[in-house]
Design a protein around this nucleic acid. Structure first.
Length: 222
DNA sequence: CGGGTTTGACCTGCGC
DNA sequence: GCGCAGGTCAAACCCG
């Protein structure tokens, strides 16, 4: 039996840390905080782990953009622009969550509830990756607790809970109904324990202003 | 034997 | 109020 955290696409990602970064960090900090444009994603939340070499595409959604909302505000850098895949990978394309296409209803409700004009941190994020493997190794240990077929989708949705005692983080994983090559992963909650991953750094392209994953170590320290 | 997966049943929220 | 769909539970089962 292969555990949920068994052989999988190389990928480490701490959703709660990313959420803090995306919701607060991006809203409060100017671009290129480290002069040369490199920044440690791990900044305030302790660690931000992201190991991603083989994914062809990395789409990121947070409910800040709303489950079925319109285009994200132009003034706020998109999450997918922050977590651009390495240069060898295809650039992330913006993904507008479509409730009708299967993004969970509860997320849409929370997104609506968050319409207050204030920056807030959220505990729900979702992203889409192109991968043959549905299980992404995000650094945490997950236990599967349910599987459900989804209406209008040929692919079942799998439900996972963090195996760490006292941690109530959940995630849902399903194949994109429109393109089975993609896996849609949605995290729900905030880990209350350390993510056993690795700090990941990104750089900002001066021309486009977009961020690129730079590697596992701070460029200035290499 | 412990921990994880499977899967049918049950619960809950939402739309009509 | 009812039906539907999504989310969760929990017993059975599997595997190392």
């Amino acid at each position: 039996m292969a555990a949920a955290t068994g052989a999988s696409t190389p990928f480490n990602f701490c959703p709660h840390a990313a959420d803090v970064v995306l919701s607060s960090w991006m809203a409060t900090r100017p671009p290129a905080p480290h002069g040369g444009g490199a920044f440690g994603v791990a900044a305030s939340s302790g660690e931000m782990m992201l190991r991603q070499q083989h994914l062809d595409l990395f789409d990121y959604l947070s409910d800040d953009q709303g489950g079925a909302g319109p285009a994200r505000p132009a003034a706020v850098p998109s999450a997918s622009s922050l977590f651009m895949p390495p240069p060898a990978m295809a650039p992330a394309e913006p993904v507008v969550p479509d409730a009708a296409a299967g993004y969970p209803r509860r997320v849409n409700l929370l997104a609506a509830a968050g319409e207050g004009g204030t920056t807030r941190t959220t505990d729900k994020i979702a992203f889409r990756t192109r991968s043959d493997d549905e299980i992404l190794d995000d650094g945490y240990k997950w236990r599967k607790y349910g599987k459900k077929s989804v209406k209008n989708s040929p692919n079942p949705r799998n439900y996972y809970r963090c195996s760490t005692e006292g941690c109530n983080v959940k995630k849902r994983v399903e194949r994109d109904r429109n393109d089975p090559r993609y896996v849609v992963t949605m995290y729900d909650g905030i880990h209350n324990h350390v993510c056993p991953g690795t700090v990941y750094y990104a750089t900002q392209d001066a021309a486009s202003g977009r961020f690129f994953v730079a590697g596992m170590h701070h460029p200035d320290l290499n």
